[in-house]
Amino acid sequence: MSTTVLPATVLPAGLPAPAIEPLARPYWEGTRAGRLVIQKCRGCGRHQWGPEWICHRCHSFDLDWAEVAPRGRIWSWQRPHHPVHSALTGHTPYTIVLVELPHADNVRMVGNLICPPDAKVEIGAAVEAVFEPHDAADPPYTLVQWRLAG
């Protein structure tokens, strides 16, 4: 599977880091290794996202984690211009996408689309994940970003 790693970050330094909480630890361990890993229920075999303590479909607490294809399609998008955080001042606009993963029961993930600030964005466009390491952070973490699939 794709293990594309981004040389620089999409957004400037200084934004909040993700807290690596126990419920989501396998996801964050996966991204560090360049793998997209999400919750999959051992009871009914279906994926869910974000992480939950229970399967919302069959109520099993026996939730596994499974690697899924790092590919999806844009379900919706936005391009913020107003800086909502001091780190973003002078760095807008940027593009946020909601990506649906057809190979994983259509769960959706939020990330940035790697594109020029005036690029046209099409709902339904195919995208692929790009792993963005923040190695200097304590603890280090890796975000999942998206780019149009070539």
Binding site: P18, E21, H85, L88, L143
Partner: peptide
């Protein structure tokens, strides 16, 4: 103004989705 975003925000705030 937090150093680390928890819960749902862990999957949103690092992408500049906060307001």
């Amino acid at each position: 103004a937090v150093a680390a975003a928890a819960g749902d925000d862990a999957f949103l705030a690092p992408y500049g989705l906060m307001s």
